[in-house]
């Protein structure tokens, strides 16, 4: 899918997200793929906070804020309700799509997400991952990476930021034997767009996990969002993959990684990391890729 094939309409517009917000780019791009028959569900979080302040309502399509833990469960209800309503009124194509952040997905919303996948509900769940609770002021989430400084994992002499790695949401979701799951980054928007399009044509539950840098939380210039979102995939600290028909597949397998140290050092949240910390991160990256390349196609 190329730029000209996208819906010309803008469905997320005039919102109050910070300049350079990666999350808003993910939402905007996905809705341009799904079009006017997308019904968006967004839990409490950045994208709902910046888009739904009566009377400033920034979604051009049907959209609703869900409870924080309830993205997937509300999607289930929306899909079931729309299906019934459509049957009566003769509507055909619609998409129930959710946009939840990393906290809304990997922490408070994981139970509802697991339930929806288990039921096989015909919904598309997009996790825009900015790696911390940004809306409330940069607190650690289950998807905050190892070493990152947040306001609840301060970097001091004793503890160098967050001491745990990111939850492996992609494989947690895939382990449900979901019809389709994918990872993406807003740095490679075409890849993301293609995955959203692919997901929109599959029946059952679909999950896309898209890295969406937050300049405020990551400590990067607002102009660097896309560049950093590319670098995370280029340096191997993120990977682009799909899970389909019970199999994992890399959609991008870099021959060589760019410098993970350079990726980390350019961000305020990693400024405090020692050479040893960085070596730990690189070691963990290498082990992950070794496993991926061995086990996945």
């Amino acid at each position: 899918m190329n730029a000209s094939a996208l819906d010309k309409n803008e469905y997320f517009y005039g919102h109050k997200a910070c300049a350079g917000c990666g999350g808003s780019l993910a939402v905007r791009a996905a809705l341009k793929v799904l079009g006017e028959r997308a019904v968006a569900v967004l839990p409490a979080g950045c994208m709902s906070a910046v888009g739904f302040n009566f009377p400033q309502l920034c979604f051009g399509n049907n959209a609703i804020i869900s409870m924080f833990a309830g993205t997937a469960s509300m999607l289930t209800g929306v899909e079931a309700g729309l299906r019934r309503y459509a049957r009566r009124k003769g509507y055909k194509d619609f998409h129930a799509v959710g946009f939840a952040g990393d906290g809304g997905t990997a922490d408070i919303g994981i139970q509802a997400l697991s339930g929806a996948i288990d039921r096989g509900d015909d919904i598309l769940y997009i996790c825009y991952d900015n790696e911390a609770y940004m809306n409330t002021g940069i607190q650690k989430s289950g998807l905050t990476p190892y070493g990152a400084r947040t306001t609840t994992t301060p970097a001091g002499a004793n503890i160098h930021g967050n001491i745990r790695p990111k939850k492996n949401m992609f494989e947690i979701v895939a382990a449900h034997d979901i019809p389709y799951a994918a990872t993406a980054t807003v740095g490679y928007i075409n890849d993301f767009i293609n995955k959203v399009e692919k997901a929109s044509k599959i029946r059952g539950t679909k999950y896309i996990h898209v890295i969406a840098p937050c300049p405020t939380g990551w400590g990067i210039p607002v102009s660097d969002t896309v560049e950093v979102a590319r670098e995370i995939a280029d340096c191997g600290l993120w990977y682009l993959a799909e899970y389909e028909n019970g199999e994992y597949r890399l959609t991008r397998d870099p021959k060589e990684f760019t410098s993970a140290e350079a990726y980390l050092r350019r961000q305020g949240r990693f400024k405090h990391l020692t050479d040893e910390d960085i070596a730990t991160i690189i070691d963990s990256r290498d082990r992950k890729w070794e496993r991926i390349r061995k086990e996945w196609k």
Partner: peptide
């Protein structure tokens, strides 16, 4: 949560 979603539909 599901009932609210369906009602909203």
């Amino acid at each position: 949560s599901c009932a609210i979603g369906a009602s909203a539909a």
